[in-house]
């Protein structure tokens, strides 16, 4: 399943600065595994305190979140609050 993955600019070190990449996977966790194969080191970056936005929904702990074919997945830093 092809998914369009968008990386916030602080997560682009392992991609050499590329902001949008293709990845395969039916869950966010599977996407991360695939991305780590394509861009070694990216997996660690995406597993450490990172949220995703899918279809406008901010999801803080997304590892098992399903991803539909053709979805747009945005990886962003995790937020905190008071």
């Amino acid at each position: 399943m092809a998914v369009r993955v968008h990386l916030s600019s602080n997560l682009r070190g392992p991609t050499g600065g590329i902001a949008e990449v293709e990845a395969d996977g039916s869950t966010v966790g599977a996407l991360i595994d695939d991305l780590d194969r394509r861009y070694p080191g990216l997996g660690d970056a995406l597993r450490a305190g990172v949220s995703v936005v899918i279809d406008g929904l901010l999801i803080a702990h997304p590892e098992y979140e399903p991803v539909a074919d053709g979805a747009q997945v945005y990886f962003v830093p995790q937020t905190a609050g008071g």
């Binding site: 990386l7 916030s8 600019s9 406008g56 962003v76």
Partner: peptide, 10 residues
């Protein structure tokens, strides 16, 4: 798009 790249919802 937000600073982090994702599009704002409503």
């Amino acid at each position: 798009p937000s600073t982090m790249g994702f599009p704002f919802a409503r």
